[in-house]
Design a protein around this nucleic acid. Structure first.
Length: 105
DNA sequence: CTCTTGACGCCGG
DNA sequence: TCCGGCGCCAAGA
């Protein structure tokens, strides 16, 4: 068999490594991760999450405006509730100003 | 090689 | 606040 299709390239590995470090109750936007990495862009990070997100706390990675990943809004909101992640008044999006994680180190 | 796609981001209107 | 449009950039077809 050829498990190559499920293998992680260096970039994907770097992305997941950062996601795993995001503390509960805090989040990071796709673009933030690309910036911390210093390479690639929001869409590249999004591609990685779409393929390997299931292995990490994916709900802590979302759009820059606080909107949770498409198709996973319900699951994500649930997590934010138990993690006490600061949400906007509407309760549908994360309050990025307060929840954004500064980054490693 | 060209064209489309996509868990994005920003700027108007 | 909610769209629509455009830029971005790698992966697929």
């Amino acid at each position: 068999m050829d498990p190559a299709e499920d293998e992680l390239d260096d970039y994907s590995d770097a992305v997941l490594e950062i996601v795993e470090q995001i503390p509960p109750g805090r989040v990071l936007a796709y673009g933030d991760i690309a910036e911390l990495l210093g390479s690639g862009g929001p869409r590249q990070v999004g591609r990685v999450m779409a393929r390997f997100g299931g292995a990490v706390p994916w709900w802590r990675v979302l759009r820059a405006d606080g909107t949770p990943p498409p198709g996973h809004e319900v699951r994500a909101l649930e997590e934010y509730r138990v993690e006490r992640t600061p949400l906007r008044p509407d309760g549908r999006r994360v309050d990025m100003r307060r929840a954004r994680w500064p980054g490693p180190s």
